[in-house]
């Protein structure tokens, strides 16, 4: 540091301005604001952050405990779905029930539908067998069962890959009156893994189609009677002939549709999957109560994390804007004082 620089500093210090007496009086006359016991923001953060974390973990643990209660069903869950009997497939409910264990035990399918109404039954079964030999035998037995009940196998897809496992996929048709027996017998081919049953009421469709057919028949008869009248002008005759042809075509379509409805109502469709243990894994819950609790708690924590992440994503643009404003203000102060 040069001597002159030192002189400058000494001069500046020696001649430093002093606050005027009026300013001193003005400042010292000020009354301090009443003290409030407010927690400093940094300390508040140190308390609030662990508290929020503890609440989040606590909520997850409580959720885990509540969600890990004893299950009402056994280790294997069998699902059945049931459609509304009156208005088609509008109401789907899942009913857990006890599975069959072994070939001799037949699962109790729910009693649905009434014999007096036209209903279509659609069933889906998954059965597990021990090995590939048992798979072949069960597939053969399945086709025999449906044949014996007056039905048939629409398609059979038998697959045994080289890894030792295998499965066969059968699309079966059985008379509607024998569907319950067929499901019971097919379920007994091995260990029933899952079973779904839906019943669609076709009675209203059938009645509507029958009414339309009757109406069309009456119309056809009326047109034919009118055409037999020899006094009918040629122009009107042509128009009537066209209408008669249209009515006949519509009648044929309605008849065909009703035939399909009757066929669907009298024949049930069963999709059967027979597989070895490697191919079909039953829905087994190995977790104990503690495991379920942990699983549930971890899931809940993950959900909280997702919510937090979402909040961060929403907040981050605002934080960026705030940071930009802060930087701009700071820069403007620098420019202001450098001028």
């Amino acid at each position: 540091m040069s001597a002159s620089e030192l002189t400058v500093e000494r001069l500046l210090r020696a001649h430093a301005p002093h606050a005027p007496e009026r300013l001193r009086e003005r400042v010292l006359a000020l009354e301090p604001a009443p003290q409030r016991r407010n927690m400093p923001s940094r300390r508040l953060l140190l308390v609030a952050l662990p508290a929020a974390l503890a609440i989040a973990v606590g909520a997850a643990v409580v959720h885990g405990i509540v969600g890990s209660g004893p299950r009402p069903v056994a280790s294997v869950t069998v699902e059945q779905s049931l459609s509304a009997p009156a208005q088609g497939r509008t109401d789907l409910r899942k009913l857990p029930f006890q599975p069959s264990v072994g070939a001799g035990h037949i699962a109790a399918a729910p009693s649905v539908g009434t014999a007096s109404r036209l209903q279509h039954t659609d069933a889906s079964l998954q059965v597990r067998v021990g090995d590939v030999d048992a798979l072949a035998a069960a597939t053969t037995r399945a086709t025999r069962i449906v044949t014996a009940l007056g039905g048939y196998a629409q398609s059979v897809d038998y697959r045994t890959p080289q890894n030792g496992g295998g499965a066969s996929y059968l699309e079966l048709r059985v008379p509607a009156q024998n569907v319950k027996v067929a499901i019971a017998r097919l379920g007994g081919l091995g260990t029933l893994v899952s079973q779904e049953l839906s019943v669609t009421d076709l009675q209203r469709t059938f009645q509507t189609q029958s009414e339309q057919i009757a109406q069309l028949r009456r119309r056809v008869a009326a047109f034919q009677a009118a055409l037999r009248d020899s006094s009918l002008p040629e122009g009107q005759k042509v128009i009537l002939q066209i209408r008669l042809a249209e009515s006949k075509r519509a009648l044929a379509q309605r008849l065909n549709a009703r035939k399909g409805t009757i066929s669907a109502g009298t024949t049930a469709q069963i999709s059967l999957v027979i597989g070895t243990e490697k191919a079909i894994a039953p829905v087994v819950h190995h977790r104990g109560r503690l495991g379920r609790m942990l699983h549930s708690a971890v899931g809940f924590l993950a959900l909280e994390g997702m919510i937090l992440l979402y909040a961060l994503i929403v907040i981050s643009p605002l934080a960026i804007v705030a940071a930009a404003i802060w930087a701009w203000r700071r820069r403007s102060v620098e420019r202001l004082l450098a001028a």
Binding site: V8, L11, L12, H15, A16, P17, H18
Partner: peptide, 8 residues
């Protein structure tokens, strides 16, 4: 300043 030299 109080009594600071003019040049300064």
């Amino acid at each position: 300043g109080d009594g600071l030299p003019g040049p300064l």
